[in-house]
Amino acid sequence: MTSLFEELQPAAAAEVQTTRVDIKINGEYKAAQIEPRLLLAHLIRNGFRLTGTHTGCDTTNCGACTVLMDGAPVKSCTVFAVQANGHEVTTVEGLATASELHPIQEGFKDEHGLQCGFCTPGMMLSAKALLDENLNPTEDEVRWALSGNLCRCTGYQNIVKAVLWAAAKMRGDVPADEAATADDSPGGEA
């Protein structure tokens, strides 16, 4: 039986192939000596200690572990860390700056786009991939882009509103809810 510890400390096991990987993660260059079977999600969380990336189902279904690899969303539980060698990875920690939330994060806050928050990092990175390509998405396009990310709390309504809010903000429009603050009841629509 192997353990994640053993996976992350390959030197502990004799005669195991290890590979050096160099990954630019959230703008910072990091290196690690790893076993090829280490999953990217595990390197990010347990190796690099960036625990904003969540592992939900661990079976390529839920999208909680979504990160951007060279700008495209991938399920980090379904990519070997060694495959990210020489590539650029963005996790949820890479969205905000030291002083300011990313508009997508602001949107999730403003529109109550999360309840338990477990799916949120994945949702936000899928949303970022969408908005990087299309700053003016329709509601349908938002739903389509997020269809690989499961949320068991919200019923998705407020997540979709959050992404539309962020799109408006990033376009420089005043987000609809800023203009009319009257309707502020959480979970008003289902």
């Binding site: 390529t60 999208g63 979504t66 495209a72 969303p73 991938v74 399920k75 379904t78 990519v79 899928s126 389509w144 882009a145 997020l146 269809s147 690989g148 990310n149």
Partner: peptide, 12 residues
């Protein structure tokens, strides 16, 4: 093409 798996799986 748009009906294969989900959008995240489709990128890989």
């Amino acid at each position: 093409a748009p009906l294969v798996a989900d959008p995240i799986v489709r990128t890989r």
